[in-house]
């Protein structure tokens, strides 16, 4: 064992004298993950949320191969009629405005399009936007935060003022104006949403950077001659990873909601590309006559956002060291 390691453990033992925690430190990586997973598993709703989410993402991923009908034309995708069918043909229109049934579990719209197929394809976009925004916001935030935390001084001051400004903006208004300018492709919406959601991650990473910088073992590592940024980064990551994961997860929920809201207001992704938000917007007029057309896509938003939130809650408990230990 090296000098540094020995002292580190001594300090750690003073802080957390119990036998368990002492060992916990021994091989931090694996055990910490196992402890987190054990805590997470106890959250029943978080587990349910995780499985629902995996299911939804799988369905979205596989939509082109498993949907029975084409989402835009309403034609069957399999069987012999696949070749002969065309959009708006009498054959498709004969099935228009159907209430939910075995053949069309979510009904059909006035163009005879199978709503289940369309909801599945809409989910592709909505869920992809959610994940894309969360990951890019996490990346931007981590980059900004580590730059500010590592450089300190003027850079830090400047970047944190920028963060403050972004946090003080009327978000929805900025989103609307920005998406009016960059009209609604999926990629643009992801960029715009990431642009207003990166700040919390930046603050988390900056905070961890600063606290690591203070710590003694960084001094020790520096004395050995390892370049600064890499050292801090390597030490920072395990500490900040938990909060970042929680933040990224919760951003998925916020992004799905924001995308659907923008699309509903007509500023997001525009038809014929289906997203849950614009499907509801288009079917607003049929709310009374064919309520299922707006209820199902909305229900899907609710279910996916709810799952993400449950999962995020479980992750917070599992990964955040400050969360309560004693519970009944």
């Amino acid at each position: 064992m090296t000098e540094v390691g020995g002292r580190q453990q001594q300090e750690e033992a003073l802080l957390a004298p119990s036998e368990d925690e002492f060992h916990e430190f021994e091989d931090a990586g694996r055990t910490q993950f196992q402890i987190a997973w054990r805590k997470f598993k106890r959250h029943r709703m978080a587990m349910v949320g995780m499985f629902v989410l995996i299911f939804l993402y799988l369905v979205a991923l596989l939509a082109p191969w498993i949907t029975p009908y084409d989402p835009n034309s309403g034609c069957p995708r399999f069987g012999e009629r696949k070749e002969t069918c065309s959009p708006l043909s009498a054959e498709v229109l004969a099935d228009s405005n159907q209430a939910p049934s075995l053949k069309h579990p979510m009904g059909t719209d006035n163009l005879g399009r199978d709503w289940l197929s369309r909801v599945m394809f809409g989910g592709r976009v909505s869920l992809a936007v959610g994940l894309g925004v969360a990951l890019s916001a996490g990346l931007i935030g981590t980059a900004m935060g580590s730059l500010a935390g590592f450089r300190g001084g003027l850079t830090d001051n400047l970047l944190m003022r920028v963060t403050d400004i972004f946090l003080a903006m009327p978000v929805l208004l900025v989103l609307l104006i920005a998406s009016k300018w960059l009209s609604g492709t999926t990629r643009n919406i992801v960029i715009i949403l990431a642009f207003v959601t990166w700040m919390p991650a930046a603050r988390i990473v900056r905070g961890s950077f600063l606290s690591i910088k203070e710590k003694e073992y960084i001094e020790a590592a520096r004395a050995v001659g390892v370049p600064g940024f890499r050292t801090i980064w390597r030490h920072m990551l395990p500490n900040a990873l938990g909060p970042i994961i929680v933040q990224v997860t919760l951003t998925i929920a916020a992004a799905i909601l924001a995308e659907s809201t923008l699309s509903f207001l007509g500023f997001g992704i525009s038809p014929p590309t289906a997203t849950w938000g614009n499907m509801i917007a288009v079917q607003r007029t049929t709310m009374v006559t064919q309520p299922w057309l707006s209820i199902f896509p909305g229900l899907m938003i609710l279910i996916s956002v709810l799952s993400v939130n449950f999962m995020g809650d479980g992750l917070r408990d599992a990964l955040d060291p400050t969360s309560l230990k004693v519970r009944a």
Binding site: A253, L257, S260, T261, F264, L265, G277, I280, R284, M287, V288, P291, S294, I295, G298, I301, L302, V305, L306, N309, F310, D313
Partner: peptide, 22 residues
């Protein structure tokens, strides 16, 4: 409260219109 923070407000508004309005 989980339902409340997860529900898209516009959709909840439409449901209110449908059920409590119509």
């Amino acid at each position: 409260s989980f339902l409340g923070i997860s529900v898209p407000i516009f959709w909840f508004g439409l449901l209110l219109q449908l059920f409590l309005g119509f």
